[in-house]
Nucleic acid binder design. Structure first.
Lengths: 177, 177
DNA sequence: TAGTGCATGTAATGCGTTACATGATTTC
DNA sequence: GAAATCATGTAACGCATTACATGCACTA
């Protein structure tokens, strides 16, 4: 089966109860986008492709005069999902401008370089606020959906703390021999 | 000044002593690639653009009959670098297939879902081995270059430990009421 | 009745990687 | 003499985002 970057997201979100392309996009934007983004330009063509391949089944289910197509996983689709789940992980990419800045921070006076660490810390704290807001939403998520949210929270807590520790270390080093 | 994704990497690596496009690509591949990749297809055209804009100065410095162009930052280039360093961080993107798998792991029997956590843990450990090898290379890096390497090591240690903790938690929950 | 949300879709654009071409030099 | 390294460069390809177009329904 041909795989694109959106394939697993679509299969996975349908397994979690999403129905329309619109649903999927919304779910992505409030969950996977933090580690796996997807746009309409990928989702809609891929839905048609997956239906043609028999991994999902679509059915017109308009809301009044408002057109809507509801999809669900077929047996083949569920199988493809579990196969992907058990396959080898390939992609782990990080594009972190704040880390890149830190990497080149020797070009700055010490004071300003430390400012970059502080800014990174704030970044983690802001991210944390977003994740806590998501966490506070009513309704309970499946175990592993929740686990990943918990990962995000723990990661940002760790990251903020790491920045703090390095700040303290570098500031105490200021008094040289 | 027009900014593309490679601009800061080039300016930054030149500030750290890289000279040719080839140098830059090598430096990227053994350092920033973990959080900011760049390919020849970006680097060479951008070097020419930056020279035309006066941010870097190039000079032909062939190695015998082997052509080579050595660049260095101009005053304007150094200024552009520090401005970028002090600007607002925009890009923080994560594309983590292992996290995506975990997110959909409720579709698997418990045993196999826990296997995903174990696989993620192994991923962190393998990454750690790569970073330790880089750390063991002789020569000392500038402070913040070293700091970022240290971040990578600490992050993967944290990540492996988090997986371990979750595994233990989820396994102990196995004995229900 | 204006604004927001539901819903589908695509064209244009931009960006980055891959893969290749070329050739000299150093090392084994 | 083969293989690796130094060194520059680009064309083709694929992919993903952005931005737009369309239209119904609900709500303030």
């Amino acid at each position: 089966m041909k795989q694109t970057a959106v394939t697993p997201v679509i299969l996975g979100l349908l397994s979690l109860g999403a129905r329309s392309g619109y649903d999927i996009k919304n779910a992505v934007d409030s969950s996977t986008r933090f580690f796996w983004a997807a746009s309409y330009g990928q989702i809609y063509p891929e839905l048609r492709r997956l239906e043609a391949e028999g991994l999902i089944a679509g059915e017109d289910s308009p809301n009044g005069g408002r057109e809507r197509r509801a999809y669900k996983l077929t047996a083949a689709g569920r199988k493809a999902l579990t196969e992907w789940l058990l396959g080898r992980t390939v992609t782990i990419e990080l594009r972190d401008e704040s880390l890149l800045r830190l990497f080149f921070a020797d070009a700055l006076p010490r004071e300003q370089a430390l400012g970059l660490l502080e800014a990174r810390k704030r970044g983690h704290e802001e991210y944390l606020a977003v994740l806590h807001a998501i966490d506070a939403r009513p309704g309970d998520d499946p175990d592993f959906v929740d686990l990943v949210l918990r990962w995000g929270i723990a990661f940002n807590e760790w990251g903020a703390q790491w920045c703090q520790e390095q700040l303290e270390r570098l500031q105490s080093e200021k008094t040289p021999a």
